[in-house]
Amino acid sequence: MPEIFIAFSYKDVLFLLQGALVTVALCAMAFSCGLVVALAIGLMRTARRLRPLQWVAGAYVEVFRGTPLLMQIFIAYFGLSILGLNLPRFVAVSVPLILFTGAFMGEIVRAGIEAIPRGQWEAGWSLGMTYGQLMRYVVAPTAVRIMIPPSVGFLVQLVKGTSLAYVVGYVELTRAGYIISQSTYATMLVFTLVGAIYFGINYPLSLASQRLEVRLKRHA
């Protein structure tokens, strides 16, 4: 009888760790680029005088938070391709991940900006500060501190969310788990390891987020 199942071995653990590297890389890329988008969205959503900007940003946030990330990646790669726009794989997975990050982080940025009392804004205006100066010297110092804990919290979500990159062919941690499970049929062992590695990546982040939150409260 031909050999059709493979025994689980140390090689498989290495394969999982390789997958974990892909996960971390995707996450780092999405987070750093998504931050730029989030900043723009946060500023647009708090622009009181410019209604259309608010609407555009609001619609963007709703769409990206209201549909499964899997669909977003799927449409960016396959959906656009059908319309004749063939994005390279890396771009096709990066863009939705970045926009997804932008939508969630955008709300965090907005919350940070809105936490600044109106009085401080008015004080800034009356001193003759420009919008940029106001943002930089009055809003940013406090808002950024407020934003840090939830941002790190979102990072945990993002680490898990990158597992959906499998749909365009990335072998990240979860997909690596599936691949090993499909060759060894050791499903529970494999997914225990997968869970443990995710925990190993995420727990330090969660811990950092809590520490920052506590420190923030002490300073406030």
């Binding site: 597992s163 529970m188 997914f191 225990t192 997968v194 869970g195 995710y198 925990f199 995420n202 727990y203």
Partner: peptide, 19 residues
């Protein structure tokens, strides 16, 4: 809280279903 938030839902699902 920490175990649930830091592991993927899929793994939790397999654990409850098969575990």
């Amino acid at each position: 809280v920490e175990v649930i938030r830091n592991t993927p839902f899929l793994v939790q699902l397999f654990y409850v279903y098969f575990g």
